[in-house]
């Protein structure tokens, strides 16, 4: 069974950066259809793709049109069908982040932009490990 990664981000270049990082680092898994990447450019579409595809990992921006990252994360984390999904909230440096709210709604991690692409790889590797052990 493949692991699905969903990127919810309104800035196309950030989505592309994450996708490119994943494609370069996990090309073997992608080629064998063991890893799939999905993308959405707003929280609303993100939630809908998450419900449909049930990803194991979500990278989500906070400030987005239609639905922000907090609301998207809250809906996803409250959905019993999406239990265990690992959510990483992406924040811009200097952006005021309500860490308490993030914790309350169940975000698993924060990552500050500009992020180190290697950290994206580390997060994915950890999720893959958990997935394998399950």
């Amino acid at each position: 069974m493949s692991v699905k990664i969903l990127i919810i981000e309104d800035e196309i270049h950030i989505r592309r950066l994450i996708m490119q990082t994943v494609e370069l680092s996990f090309d073997e898994l992608i080629d064998n259809d063991e890893l799939e990447i999905y993308e959405a450019d707003n929280g609303e579409d993100g939630v809908s793709i998450a419900k449909e595809e049930r990803p194991g990992l979500i990278f989500s921006d906070i400030m987005m049109p239609k639905m922000d990252g907090y609301d998207a994360c809250k809906i996803i984390k409250e959905d019993p069908a999406l239990q265990g999904v690992y959510v990483v909230l992406l924040t811009a440096k200097g952006q005021k982040v309500d860490q308490k709210l993030g914790m309350e709604i169940g975000a698993d991690e924060y990552m500050t932009k500009p992020f180190d692409p290697d950290n994206i790889v580390i997060v994915i590797e950890n999720v893959l490990k958990i997935n394998r052990s399950n």
Binding site: L17, P114, P117
Partner: peptide, 11 residues
């Protein structure tokens, strides 16, 4: 995308 990623890594 590769070029962008490379520049992003430098930044």
């Amino acid at each position: 995308n590769n070029e962008t990623l490379s520049l992003y890594k430098e930044i």
